[in-house]
Amino acid sequence: MQRARRDQRTGSGLVAALLLLIAGAASAQDALPVRNCTWCHGSSAQGFMFAPRLAGQRTAYIERELASFAAHARDNPLSQKYMWGAVARLDPATAQGLAVYFSSLAPEAAADGQSGLAATGKAIYDNGVAVDNVAACIACHGPNGEGVRDIPRLGGLSYVYLKRRLEQWNQGYHQSAKPMPLVAKSLSANEVEALASYLSFVQFVDVGR
């Protein structure tokens, strides 16, 4: 009885995996210019060099960021140099297709932060620091850094990328990304280190796209 149920589950898991593979392969190679993205973002979109992981990111968030690159609203130097060109000739339908595709890939945690800072980072993430007006990230990004709707998944993004993002709002870039410029303003350098370290270790929790 136990055994049969387990087999059944493995069976349906396999079917789902096959379906995903077929769907992935078809949309990846035929219709969508995935290769135009993965040569920077890594062949399985897990992130590479300066380019962040796209795998498992929320569909609505990816779509909005692509639009903000196109509108030159996300304007930090790396975005200007790499992403403005990459989206210049992307039509909305293709952008949406790419967003759906990348969000469907299972993400891996970069785990490249300082593990000694992870506990401090988690405390700030969960509770904020009320005396210093640091907001609890959990209120918007969720208990496992999974995000919701168009609020991005943060869990497992690379330490280097997260640190840079949190610093750039204070340098005056991408002020339209509300409410993050305001949130980032109250973060000290140490808090940024701790948050980016913690988040880089957070494992994938599947909550849909």
Partner: peptide
């Protein structure tokens, strides 16, 4: 002003409410 701005990071820029991981 700093505290007022802080509250509005979560409750919405004009305190009209905000839908995060749960509604504020």
């Amino acid at each position: 002003q700093a505290k007022f701005a802080y509250c509005r990071t979560c409750h919405g820029v004009n305190a009209q409410g905000f839908r995060g991981s749960f509604p504020m």
